[in-house]
Design a protein around this nucleic acid. Structure first.
Lengths: 240, 240
DNA sequence: CTCCACTGGGTACACCGTACGCGGTTATGG
DNA sequence: CCATAACCGCGTACGGTGTACCCAGTGGAG
């Protein structure tokens, strides 16, 4: 089987030359799959369901995509393309990285199922590559490439970690089929139980005293992000 | 169905009083599942496979655990318990947090499938709670609870992000069934293609010039961690 | 002793990803 | 211009999954 040559989906040509015109396209299939995943979760985006969405037979999809895993790869890369990094670097690194972080968070909130995939690393899709160029370009003039990588690890770690929290609880709610207040009401007994045990003073302090959980999600995120950017500022030379 | 009362696995009692002695236990099932997941990935830990591992019938597991998702919750919490945070806070916060980060990384590397479990957050298992107590206890004397939460978000974000990279590529290799050198050889054509296009100068710089990817994983992690701890140090009052 | 809540587990069902092969369509080489 | 090979969409089928339901047996409570 010569197909084994194409380990990476991005090296496999979408269409060969000969034969009849195809009725669908990778982009169309990917869009349909994303639409379903957004509305009902990634597990609802089955091959049969996606095919039905675009009016095709289930097995037709395999003319365009070698496997469901590869399709998910395509979906993930398409999402990276949604993050607006146009015009970076603009000269104001703090503004650029804030825009990137906000854009990333917004994208994750639009597509919460991305939290369950995120292998994405070694696939090198075009949108992912472009994102790397733009975002790492922001600090490229100020620091070495190694320094840049280290700082990006911190920034991306913070953003991903923070958004993952938001998203996973939202997904939990969606999966339970309950409304949000209903769901928090259901979780309350466990929290009460934990507090009542008296064994967890710091957890108790978080629940009873911390102001942060009472802030809006936006404010929580921005506050933490500001702190991370301060860290980055400290690592930059004075000229920046 | 009165079972709906127990939204959280930790509130559901393991055993009722009446009836014959059970032949297995939650702990035994959880251990077997972890053993399988470690060796062959989480997707190999099917209900039938786990049951076979302990010599039970597939449906017997449902006497102990309401669903596979809940079992995964149990597995995840058990893993949290593997991180050694004994004797924290010791007085040396930097040593404590380093030990926590190293322990967390080591645990993830032992159980790479944990990267595919994203929920874990709102479940409040006993091991997770204990971990929170110990780790957040490290900075509790020095900063406010809100400050502590913000700093932990950065630390956890970095550790999780860094380890997730290591683990997801390792999982990719395992899933492909190839040896590691074979697998990197397979990825090479795509990288060559990207470099040859000339459209991605920063990516090219990473591949050709950066020293970091050539360091050992351990050194990469420690270097980044040191940077994060410096950030935390800057946020602490001088007394710490 | 009787009762019945409990046990482990067999069977069955709906659904999944996808291998295989069909008859029809079309770009190309002779 | 036509034969042919390559490709199309897709129906069928297979081996797998999680788990609902039901059963006969077991053992503590009244």
């Amino acid at each position: 089987m010569t197909d084994a040559e194409y380990v990476n989906i991005w090296m496999r040509p979408e269409r060969p030359a000969r034969g009849p015109k195809p009725a669908y396209s990778r982009a169309q299939i990917t869009d349909a799959a994303i639409r379903i995943a957004d509305a009902e979760g990634l597990e609802a985006a089955t091959m049969r369901r996606i095919a039905a969405e675009i009016g095709a037979g289930a097995m037709s999809l395999y003319r365009y995509v070698p496997s469901r895993d590869d399709l998910i790869e395509l979906m993930a890369d398409r999402l990276q393309g949604e993050i607006d990094v146009e015009g970076m670097p603009s000269g104001d690194w703090r503004a650029d990285l804030t825009r990137y972080a906000d854009g990333m968070r917004a994208m994750w909130l639009r597509h919460p199922w991305i939290a369950t995939v995120h292998r994405s690393l070694p696939s090198f899709g075009p949108n992912q590559l472009l994102l790397i160029e733009r975002v790492m370009g922001v600090l490229d003039a100020h620091v070495s490439i190694d320094e840049n990588l280290a700082l990006m690890a911190i920034l991306n770690g913070y953003v991903e970690g923070a958004v993952r929290e938001e998203v996973s609880s939202a997904e939990e709610v969606r999966r339970s089929g309950l409304s949000e207040p209903e769901w928090t009401a259901r979780s309350l007994p466990r929290i009460q139980q934990v507090l009542a045990s008296g064994d967890y003073p710091i957890f108790t302090k978080i629940v009873l005293e911390a102001r942060q959980p009472r802030l809006s999600r936006d404010d929580q995120f921005r506050h933490g992000l500001g702190r991370v950017l301060d860290c980055i500022a400290a690592a930059l030379p004075a000229t920046a």
